[in-house]
Simulated scan of single mutants.
Amino acid sequence: MAQVPSPTIRARRLRRELRRLRDRTGRTAEEVAKILGWHRTKVIRFELGHSRVMPKDMQSLLDLYDASEGERESLTGLLRQARQKGWWSAYGDVLPDDYVGFEAEATSISAFESLYVPGLLQTEEYVRAIVKAGRTTADHDEVDRRVAARLSRKVLLSRDAPPRLWVVLDEAVVRRVVGGPRVMKAQLRRLIDVSELATVELQILPFAAGAHAAMGGPFTLLDYADPLLDPTVVYLDNDSSTLLLEEEKQVVRYRLVFDHLRAKALDPDESTAFLARVAEGYPD
């Protein structure tokens, strides 16, 4: 499966480019809005992604910023791509945030998980057990849609150039029995199989490692082919909210934390053996 441009990534790149062009003029966002006769917050909303940039508004900005023909062509292309829909738009009711759009074009994914197996590595039965546990009032159709959305993400690992995936799992993830012994055993075997892929590294952080740098919870680092155009994103997630961090100092902090986790965890071969021992404890 070939990789297709992610509208989410293109929208972020467009916002960054508009901000760069404005900075080049030396004008504040409020000054630009005043010149164009807009509400004073309109430019800021564009640059933060709180409002969609319409073609007419972008042309006004490019004229004011004295953009070159090359810049106009590039940004017009970005706007066109940003307005397209990714496959995940069909699941907008059960995928409410932009994470999948950011994940779709990542060339490297580094994740620490302390609660459950990451979505890209989950079996269908495991997904269903997780969704049912977290959505106690959901009807059958909603559960099915959430499961389908989660499983659709897994095509990322089978595309022509899959991302490099490095996952550190807290031991609690593989000890907690989700969906019953049969489901859990199948999930552990899935982790063992995936760990053999050339593009996947999987490590277990054992209880014996004691306190560690990510006691605050799970996180994911998403890296891209051109870090100048598309800087790294840090994604934080819990039951009630999600957060995307983009500031360089925040990214540096979480990358350092991930390095510490990798150093404390069992190496990949030891981790695979650990998973096999845990799986043997469940009946066939």
Rank of each mutant, 00 (worst) to 15 (best):
Y91H: 06
G92K: 03
G92V: 05
D93Y: 02
D93P: 02
D93I: 02
L95Q: 07
L95Y: 05
L95F: 01
P96K: 09
P96A: 14
P96G: 15
P96T: 15
D97M: 08
D98F: 07
D98I: 05
D98M: 09
D98C: 06
D98L: 10
V100L: 11
V100G: 12
V100D: 13
G101D: 13
F102N: 03
F102S: 07
F102G: 03
E103C: 04
E103L: 00
A104C: 06
A104G: 08
E105H: 03
E105Y: 06
E105L: 03
T107K: 00
T107F: 06
T107W: 00
S108I: 01
I109K: 02
I109N: 00
I109L: 13
I109M: 11
I109F: 00
A111W: 06
A111K: 04
F112M: 03
F112G: 01
F112K: 00
E113I: 00
S114C: 10
S114F: 02
S114Q: 04
L115S: 11
L115C: 07
V117D: 01
V117M: 04
V117R: 04
P118T: 06
P118N: 04
P118W: 04
G119Y: 02
G119K: 01
L120W: 04
L120K: 01
L121I: 07
Q122W: 01
E124Q: 11
E124C: 05
E124R: 07
E125P: 00
Y126K: 07
V127W: 09
V127H: 04
V127M: 12
R128S: 07
R128F: 01
A129P: 07
A129C: 04
V131D: 14
K132P: 10
K132S: 14
A133F: 04
A133K: 03
A133N: 12
G134F: 06
G134S: 15
R135A: 15
R135K: 10
R135Y: 13
R135V: 10
T137E: 15
T137Y: 09
T137S: 14
T137V: 14
A138I: 10
D139V: 02
H140A: 13
H140I: 08
H140L: 05
H140T: 12
D141M: 09
D141A: 13
D141H: 11
E142V: 09
E142G: 07
V143M: 13
V143I: 15
V143S: 12
V143G: 14
V143N: 14
D144L: 13
D144P: 12
R145M: 15
R145G: 11
R145F: 08
R146S: 11
R146P: 10
R146A: 09
R146L: 10
V147I: 09
V147D: 09
A148V: 11
A148K: 05
A149W: 02
A149E: 06
A149G: 10
R150C: 14
R150P: 15
L151R: 08
L151E: 11
L151Q: 13
S152P: 05
S152C: 10
R153K: 15
R153A: 10
